[in-house]
Design a binder for these strands. Structure first.
Lengths: 108, 108
DNA sequence: ATATAATATCAATTAAAATTGATATAATTA
DNA sequence: TAATTATATCAATTTTAATTGATATTATAT
């Protein structure tokens, strides 16, 4: 039988990483933006009317997502087009999920 | 072949639920508390020295966790003993994970 | 070169959450 | 009953994040 490796350590560094990610996604509008982008790229002018959010405020939230790497951008003429960065979302989601699973799956 | 049911809807209500959960767990000390409790119950007097957090502040964070149902308490003499509520953690984690998975697993 | 449209930035304000210090409550013991 | 211990609450302060309104930047078209 294969030895399980020790999943019980969750060193400070990893908790901090999880928290950083949580702080980026814990805002309803930012979650909605990610949700909007899940099927494909969208330019800002499509995003903000969808959210019923001011243009500049949408820019602000987009910046937070972008700074963390959850979305990427490219310019197309006047428009800036945002895409979801699945790799980064996947990595961080997996780390978060690993952590949460350890909370409820652990045997006494 | 079994028909997949439609997982692409993430109505507002569910997003709100996810956000509520995120807002509870997006704080480093609260995550650490959950981590401390994962192996079994602990009284407050064991928790706060572990976190190097003031007693009253620890109480404050415990209250937030408790109000959301992530932890439960029982009194034993002078001590109040906190336990993790695996059921609630599990349910909310699953909802969150479902949402995050849809972000990066979705095909264009 | 000027005007326009899309997006980003900035300073100021507001709102929400964390922290602190002091005090209250509740259970226990002397 | 009075003193002690563990925990919780409360008001005040500080910190952090969201929002607003105004303006700057950048790309394009006239």
């Amino acid at each position: 039988m294969k030895a399980k490796h020790n999943n019980n350590k969750m060193p400070g560094t990893e908790i901090s990483q999880v928290v950083e990610f949580l702080k980026v996604i814990d805002e309803e509008n930012r979650l909605k933006i990610l949700w909007l982008l899940r099927k494909g790229e969208k330019c800002v002018c499509e995003i903000w009317p969808c959210l019923e959010l001011a243009q500049n405020l949408t820019s602000h939230h987009l910046k937070i997502l972008r700074d963390f790497g959850l979305v990427t951008t490219r310019q197309e003429g006047l428009n800036v087009i945002y895409s979801i960065n699945k790799k980064v979302i996947k990595e961080n989601s997996k780390l978060l999920n690993k952590y949460l699973n350890l909370l409820w799956r652990v045997r006494k």
